[in-house]
Design a protein around this nucleic acid. Structure first.
Length: 493
RNA sequence: GGCGCGUUAUCCAAGAGGCUAGGAGCCGGUCUGCAAAACCGUUAACGUCGGUUCGAAUCCGACACGCGCCUCCA
């Protein structure tokens, strides 16, 4: 099955046919850098990260552009509040964005342009639009005349009359049509500005994406992505600008990710119900957050809650525990490349072998179906179960058994490199989770160890009443004892 | 008001005409002094009412409930 993607423009899943064979151009709206990123940004980041990785994985030469909008009213407002300049604010939050995305394990895009580095390109497009009669000047501003573009609202699938009937659109006296939007805004005293044919000013929101995408990907390119909330007005306006200026199709496939909800309601700045990525990473491992995001299809809403994050962590622990067991085995047994001809696999071994031959094809099937990462993870879990079963019943690690196990490891790495998951050393990752939990205890490790020793003594003298008392006491502090032949260790419940 | 989306077992979540999704939980087993942990096994579902079909979670219609966009937003 070829790659099929859901295109917002047509409202259907379509087979992806690249503009240029073997290549894929992809532009994703990054952030306006005026504050720390919240988990909605994390979702968009992770979703387009795996789309980028997957396109590369299936062999495309991908040019991935993700911008920073570093000039905007909100940035200026923030700078004024803090008594500093817009550049300081923009640079601070660009750095914060980079840190957050790096922690989430995002691959670096091919290019990460900033709007302020492309003012010339922005001005050039506006000039073209004015020349072609799609834009007009008004008291130092330049506006896009939406009436001049017949395809306006084709992405969001609305009618102009309905939009205006909403009565929530302000009628600006500088605009001919209330739906017209600013391409260029004349600067007020004290505001940052660039010179232009229309006087000193700055670009409006939307035009920077038209300019930067054209510069790095051309007038027509394959994918344009962003959150669902950008469909209108941002992407609609980008289409109007780019197609009117260039006279050709702008984007071939529009991709939009769903929202992150809190208690089934959209998380947003205006509602004030948002969590920053930094807040969440104080409590949860970045890979857990990433897993949580990928456990649902990218277009569906996901409900952010402690319970859901805890479940994601438990699920990821299951995978890492399996990988840790594999690593331990492979470390203590040299894998021979020679396979003894006489060896036979048990039925469970044959089942695992069968699962492994299907693993990558099934993973690819899932991802080909509009990047269905949730289904892809299901395939991984089935492999984990087969592997665990095989490990449990295999008493002697023969060369063929070891090579089978090594193959599981190899394929999990391959899938993990596409999803950006399970790339940590399993034992280290599991230890990290354990340590993070231990930090929240009201007992020190020394106290715990002392009680474990006392319990061991009690057990040795078959004083089970006392040993069980200690076990229960620790449990009330959230500490779970793990007995094994090597001795007793503990874990945080 | 206009437009659009969703409703899958106890919870999270795939699937989109006949084919075991998966995870967490419950329950059973292995292990254990007994447990726990781990592992294995197992369970159960398609909002309501109609229609199409040999066959419907899946397609069509109505209804109910929830959500989103129409305003800065990922």
């Amino acid at each position: 099955m070829p790659l099929r993607v859901y295109n917002t423009l047509t409202g259907e899943k379509e087979i992806f046919v690249p503009l240029t064979p073997g290549k894929a151009g992809m532009y994703v709206c990054g952030v306006t850098v005026y504050d720390y990123c919240h988990i909605g940004h994390a979702r968009a980041g992770v979703v387009f990260d795996i789309i980028y990785r997957y396109l590369k994985y299936v062999g495309y030469d991908v040019t991935y552009v993700r911008n920073y909008t570093d000039i905007d009213d909100k940035i200026i407002k923030r700078a004024n509040q803090e008594g500093t300049d817009y550049r300081t604010i923009a640079d601070r939050y660009i750095q914060a964005f980079d840190e957050d995305m790096a922690r989430l394990g995002l691959a670096k895009p091919t290019v990460e342009p900033k709007a302020t580095d492309h003012i010339d390109g922005i001005i050039a497009i506006i000039e073209t639009l004015v020349e072609k009669g799609h834009a007009y000047t008004s008291e130092g501003d330049v506006y896009y005349a939406v009436d001049t573009f017949p395809g306006y609202l084709k992405l969001s699938g609305r009618a102009m009359e309905e939009m205006q009937a909403g009565a929530r659109v302000e009628v600006g006296d500088r605009k001919r049509n209330p739906m017209d939007f600013a391409l260029w805004k004349g600067s007020k005293p004290g505001e940052p500005y660039w010179s232009s044919p229309w006087g000193e000013g700055r670009p409006g929101w939307h035009i920077e994406c038209s300019a930067m995408s054209m510069k790095f990907l051309g007038k027509t390119f394959d994918f344009h992505g962003g959150g669902k909330d950008l469909v209108f007005p941002h992407h609609e306006n980008e289409i109007a600008q780019s197609e009117a200026a260039n006279g050709c199709q702008f984007v071939r496939y529009w991709l939009h990710n769903g929202f992150v909800n809190i208690n089934a309601e959209k998380m947003s700045k205006s509602l004030g119900n948002f969590f920053t990525i930094r807040d969440v990473l104080q409590k949860y491992d970045p890979e857990t957050l990433r897993f949580f995001i990928l456990s649902a299809h990218y277009r569906s809403p996901i409900d952010f809650s402690d319970q859901n994050l805890d479940e994601s962590q438990a699920a990821l622990e299951r995978i890492y525990s399996c990988l840790a067991a594999i690593d331990e085995l492979l470390q203590s047994n040299a894998v021979s490349s020679e396979m003894a001809v006489v060896e036979h696999l048990s039925p469970v071994g044959q089942e695992l072998q069968e699962k492994l031959t299907q693993l990558i094809p099934r993973f690819v099937d899932a991802m080909d179906d509009d990047f269905n990462s949730a289904q892809a993870l299901g395939v991984v879990f089935e492999t984990v179960r087969s592997t665990n079963r095989f490990l449990a019943e295999t008493t002697e690690m023969t060369p063929i058994a070891l090579s089978l196990i090594a193959r599981v490891r190899h394929l999990c790495n391959e899938i993990g490199s596409v999803l950006g998951l399970f790339n940590s050393k399993p034992s280290v990752w599991l230890d990290g989770i354990k340590r993070a939990k231990a930090d929240q205890l009201d007992m020190t490790p020394e106290q715990i160890e002392r009680l474990i020793v006392e319990r061991a003594e009690a057990r040795a003298s078959r004083n089970f009443k006392r040993s069980d008392e200690i076990r229960d006491l620790l449990l009330t502090h959230g500490i779970q004892l793990l007995d094994s032949v090597q001795g007793t260790t503990w874990n945080v419940k």
